[in-house]
Nucleic acid binder design. Structure first.
Lengths: 110, 110
DNA sequence: GAAAATTATCGTAATATTGCGATGAATAAG
DNA sequence: CTTATTCATCGCAATATTACGATAATTTTC
């Protein structure tokens, strides 16, 4: 149904999935990398760096905002985006914890 | 268009996005956790552990297989699934590298 | 104030995702 | 051989995603 049975899964699992969903598109990976690289925030420069239309980039930024990974501060006529450090740390920690469980134990199948 | 401009982004960004997409659903997080927890692989036990129908679980397993994060070995009438250790390590490393760039520098906005 | 620049949002189109029941294919059990 | 078990796949319905152009809302510049 294109609709996820959110309530059927744990809060942690939903949260990891939420972060993963935000990263599930190369454009959003590229945007986040840009925001990190320039440290200070960027506005519509992102549009010029990506091979996508302005409206599409805006939509991706909105997705990232929805996942709380970035913030956008209005700066005159333009908007300044940046990584939300707290949420970023949370996403990083949860994802790492998820991947780090039993690093080698997964090797053998049946 | 529901279609991603894959060719417009770097191989690394596409790869991270591919892994993230596989993790972008709580059911798949739960499945992976199960596979890790039981070390050895499982088959349709997954269906009994999740509040989803057999066909839906099968579809999620297929997604995970598409991302190469798991493998499925036929074991008589049933199928044994397990984490693909090599790919798992790659996903872990790429994701970690992505998150670890400039841990604190993202704090300040404009 | 009028024109230009910067973003967000709306509308549309194409495709993807999520979920389920039903059906198939394969092996195991009787 | 027939029947049950196990799993994948098909078909369907509802919704979501990706992308773009057009438009609207701000703000700056002239």
């Amino acid at each position: 149904m294109g609709v996820t049975k959110t309530e059927a899964f744990s809060a942690i699992d939903n949260r990891i999935a939420r972060y993963a969903k935000a990263l599930a598109h190369p454009a959003r990976i590229a945007i986040l990398k840009l925001l990190i690289k320039r440290q200070a925030c960027i506005c519509g420069d992102i549009v010029h760096e990506l091979p996508l239309s302005q409206s599409t980039v805006s939509q991706h930024l909105r997705e990232l905002k929805k996942a709380r990974l970035i913030r956008g501060d209005i700066e005159g006529a333009s908007v300044c985006y940046c990584i939300d450090a707290a949420e970023w740390a949370k996403a990083s920690a949860l994802t790492r914890a998820f991947f780090e469980v039993q690093p080698g134990a997964a090797a053998k199948c049946c």
